[in-house]
Design a protein around this nucleic acid. Structure first.
Lengths: 125, 125, 125, 125
DNA sequence: GTGGTCTAGACCACC
DNA sequence: GTGGTCTAGACCACC
């Protein structure tokens, strides 16, 4: 699977999972009707407490991204993609905006910030 | 004074204070030898518990940004600025980088990301 | 457990704990991966406020001696020993040096000081 | 004068002064009947709050090391020397002992400690 | 007046 | 269960 957990960045693990599932659906990597890994399987794979996975999956059901397939597991809802695309925009914009705000409040000029953006973007794989 | 506390963003208050003091020193808003507000005074002004301020000030001493004038208060160390400029770069770069990483991992292309950056930057005051 | 708190020597309790944990790791009494007592447990055992323990544990994380297993507790980092050996040397040398300095500045000769050292060392259990 | 104040070692300034006066008397650098600097003069010279000097001098009177010379200042009592020699022994022995105790408790062997002692002693001016 | 430490206890996220 | 943060308030040394 394609989930990456960062144990050290302070973002709750279940929250990282929720986001990554949404991103995968938005991006089409996970498509409607597709089954996602079982709680146990993913817990083992990521070496994470099953409760944490369950919590993420629960939230994704509440947010109408996943739905249970009677006794067999969870699948991506067929109306999930547009919802996830929207969610992704919102989440990313908010994340980026708050980083930019901190930069400007720290005294960085817009020019310095733009330069920093380009440097960092270029440095990413 | 020029400190703004966001009680809702999950970042610990003492951590927000530590950063903002560093930014202020880096930016020259606080300069060497200058006294910073007393624990009690700042606590009252920000409506925050004095212990929380003291914790931030303690950390800033450990990081050699502030030094005590025994019994009189805390001042910015004379060698603090370059240290804070460096710290600011590190902190902001890390913050921005992790936001960009999330954007790219979510499936956004570099072009979309650059566009998002410009939109968000333009929207900020 | 093997921690001893001296409430009367002026050294902050959390600082005594930080040192003793470092010494225990340096000495191999605590080894990598080993869990340390929980905040509440140690607080009860030493009849100390949990906050004080938490403060010491927090500092030990900052200094990369301990790391969290989220939701389960704190363990000694696997690279902590060499760090603690170094820290122990530094701490003890500084402590001893400052005692020796005071002795010499007081007018004691090196011979008298050496004699005092031997007497005191012999008197210790 | 021959007083050295270390603002960074945590020992209260007045306590440093009290000790140093006792050491000077014990060592014969200050002898009976000799006047010591006035509160104001010493405060200015050491760039220290006069209250702090006054507190140290007060304690030295209580401990029968100094006595007032009606309206003209403080002098070393004529019976002060033996008292100070005794005090010096006690103070230095206690200081050294507590350093040695910490060393042994940290896991250092007596041999390592003796070696450390010799190294540190040799390194002092 | 200043900061530093500690206690007591609440609340939180995570597991 | 775990640690982390914060509030409230006491007490201390120092100036």
């Amino acid at each position: 699977m394609f989930f990456f957990i960062d144990h050290s960045n302070g973002v709750p693990i279940y929250e990282q999972l929720v986001r990554q599932v949404k991103y995968a659906v938005a991006d089409g990597v996970l498509s409607s009707g597709q089954m996602i890994p079982s709680v146990r399987q993913l817990a083992q794979q990521l070496a994470i407490n099953p409760n944490t996975i369950a919590r993420a999956y629960g939230q994704l059901q509440t947010e109408q991204v996943l739905e249970p397939l009677r006794g067999r597991g969870l699948v991506v809802r067929k109306d999930a993609r547009s919802r996830c695309v929207k969610a992704r925009s919102t989440l990313l914009a908010a994340r980026l905006r708050s980083a930019l705000e901190e930069c400007l409040q720290s005294g960085l000029s817009r020019e310095e910030l733009t330069e920093l953006f380009q440097t960092e973007l270029a440095a990413l794989p």
